[in-house]
Design a protein around this nucleic acid. Structure first.
Ligand SMILES: [Mn+2]
Ligand SMILES: [Mn+2]
Ligand SMILES: [Mn+2]
Ligand SMILES: [Mn+2]
Lengths: 141, 141
DNA sequence: ATAGCAATTTAGCCTTGACTAACTTTAAAA
DNA sequence: TTTTAAAGTTAGTCAAGGCTAAATTGCTAT
């Protein structure tokens, strides 16, 4: 009962923002593994040049990011060759793709224009908790 | 008809991500002006120490951010004194507070636990377009 | 009036994620 | 088989947004 967390009206706003910063730290990783998975599915392989074109960034930026993803165990790559997802990367990609799909479908289902939903879902997906995602999904049926 | 934008299955994903990066560039600013407004309303003034506590960051970080906000015309401040919103800052704060309120209320209205909604709304608010916000709001009545 | 504490600022560091320019490698065309 | 264009890499730069440690200022209690 001496617990300040839920009773104090000056509630722990700091926790909310810490979680927000956490989500931001994961966003690029999530979008990359999802996109790499998409490319492998659609084109048979994920090349830097395709990632650069789809994200609208330079090849140098893609290169930096891929190195970080490799360091963190999400992808493997060899110089001048295409990029592969590790088990860990594959798992994350699958989760993100499903989450993305649910958020997008939910927005469309409540009446958001598909083109607008495409924009908004790309950002919203990273800030939707498991619980909120379940609520979105349950509204889809 | 030669318009690639809406017909081409290799649609302009790049636009979506460009907008996402734009939204990210504005997030911290939006949360700060909103919080500064809250503090002025609740406590009569916005001090660095209160911002640091609420955001869960150090005083040095707050200082840096306030300087950026000042440079960009959202706040005014004098050394060792409290922080004030400019007209521009006030306008943005008001818009963000209202948007935040709508997103939060919408999440709660569809069955998300209020505590969870508080977390998720803090991130989602920055990625909700005017149009999606109107849809959320219209569902609230 | 001043000592000491709390608040603020400054300096210096780090990572992420972007860029340009220049270089290297690969692969396709000639 | 050689040339050349596309793809990928490297090097160097920058801003945002974090941090710690140390210096400074302002306020409060003695
Ligand atoms: Mn996505
Ligand atoms: Mn995304
Ligand atoms: Mn907010
Ligand atoms: Mn926010």
């Amino acid at each position: 009962m001496g617990d300040d967390t839920s009773l104090n009206p000056r509630h722990n706003k700091a926790e909310v923002f810490a979680r927000l910063r956490d989500a931001h730290a994961r966003e690029v990783t999530e979008d990359y593994v999802e996109m790499i998975g998409d490319l492998i599915a659609e084109e048979g392989e994920a090349r830097s040049v395709a990632l650069a074109e789809r994200f609208g960034v330079t090849a140098a930026t893609v290169n930096n990011t891929i190195k970080r993803l490799e360091r963190d165990g999400y992808v493997t790559s060899r110089p001048y060759r295409s990029i592969f997802l590790t088990e860990k990367g594959e798992t994350l990609a699958k989760k993100c793709r499903e989450r993305h799909r649910i958020v997008y479908n939910f927005l469309v289902s409540i009446g958001v224009d598909p083109a607008v939903a495409e924009f908004d879902a790309e950002g919203i997906e990273h800030h939707v908790s498991e619980e909120t995602l379940r609520v979105f999904d349950s509204r889809l049926k």
